[in-house]
Write a protein that binds this DNA or RNA. Structure first.
Lengths: 230, 230
DNA sequence: CGATACTGTGACAGTGGTGTGACAGTCGAG
DNA sequence: CTCGACTGTCACACCACTGTCACAGTATCG
């Protein structure tokens, strides 16, 4: 669930053919994939692996998709993941029931792979705000998260991976002051032992890159607190 | 966007009949409703009113729904709201384009009111938990805790860390008289050995900063007791 | 009025937070 | 392998900020 690894999608379906097909397509789209074959497995897998998105088939052995969804959404991990119900039923009352159970989205068979992937991305965007196709703008700075590109005033900039994530985090909430600890959490990952002063160094490098071709420093230092955009 | 008031839904459509219909149904469902008639209005309305959900028609004058969605999602307010694209086009490639622009959901005409409301609710569930930074105001003084910013009458002020915390504490409870000991506790920390007269010095510095560009002294000295805002 | 207690504030030295160049270690590409 | 890109740490310099003091100003009371 940190910004560094690929998003994890849990596929729940009882037909092996479906699992293989989906795994193949989602892997090709850059996601990590986990699978479960019935509702109980699904609930367990969510608790253990904390996926970012769950593709949940409506018809499942042992525990219906609807009930599985309810149980998933009853856990803290479940609330932090997006559940997409997959079903052959396209009647409206089912859609309504599905959404009111806590499902985040609903997709009906037959669906195209393109739409499925787009849906997964769209839901992912809410669960992991920055990591997926999103263009952030702040003043003359543009950051394309999907293409991994940054430009200032139209001219492209070269940033290392860490500086890129650092900029992305700060651009996501302009004005917000990030403590060094918060940035370590967000940019480096939750379980890392890193000197907080390292943040200073990377902020310095980011500043140098952003101001290489002139322009005001877009990063504000708040003494005793941390850093902020704008 | 606060927790106490009803969720705000922004309806964007150029047909007055649609606006009236949607407003009626959503109001009946317990939402607050705002409206916009074209894409530019929509982008503006999102920035100004910070709705929880936007119902965005695909076909709009001046700025297409797609482009409006992109611009909305490039702003911090936009990222904190759910955008539901509404369209007569049900072809798949449009859905994909819509979702990849940053839209959170997609609904096609004709839709039933029940499904629409269910979708709005489902999207709301994800958007609502996002809390917004606390902004304290007292007279013409504004203190943004998250951004660590203070302004008086619109002009930004520079405060040191201690003065900032001091002001924040006093603004949190306007009128309350703080003893020097209470302020030491609150601002400096519980187990500090500091001369109580130090509080006086910092209050003085805070006053100087607040009144640097004119204006009445917002801090009241209570002889024998301490200090208070207003 | 004088005495006393309390508060405002300029000055100042010390501290500690921050910017930054240097450097060694790691990793992947060629 | 070598090379280059990137990372994390350190040391040093700088200066904004801090806490304290001394003295001046002001309210309170006999």
């Amino acid at each position: 669930m940190t910004g560094t690894t690929a998003p994890l999608v849990l596929i729940v379906d009882d037909e092996p053919a479906q699992l293989t097909l989906l795994r193949h397509n989602l892997t090709a789209a850059g996601f990590r994939v986990a699978t479960a074959q019935d509702g109980e497995e699904a609930v367990l897998a969510v608790a253990e692996q904390g996926p970012d998105v769950v593709l949940l088939d409506w018809m499942l052995p042992r525990l219906s998709g609807l009930e599985a969804c309810r149980r998933i959404k009853a856990t803290p991990e479940g609330r932090a993941t997006a559940v997409i119900m997959v079903s052959a039923r396209s009647e409206e009352r089912d859609r309504v029931r599905g959404l009111d159970t806590g499902a985040d989205d609903y997709i009906t068979k037959p669906y195209s792979v393109a739409e499925l992937v787009a849906r997964v991305r769209a839901n992912l965007r809410r669960v992991r705000p920055v990591s997926v196709g999103q263009v952030l703008e702040h003043g003359d700075i543009r950051l394309d998260a999907e293409a991994h590109r940054v430009s200032r005033d139209g001219t492209p900039l070269h940033l290392g991976p860490t500086e890129f994530r650092l900029l992305a985090a700060m651009m996501e909430r302009p004005g917000k002051v990030w403590t060094r600890e918060a940035l370590l959490d967000r940019v480096w990952g939750r379980e890392v032992y890193i000197d907080t002063r390292t943040v200073d160094v990377h902020v310095g490098r980011l500043r140098k890159a952003l101001c290489a071709r002139g322009g005001a420093d877009p990063i504000r230092t708040v003494r005793g607190a941390g850093y902020a955009m704008g």
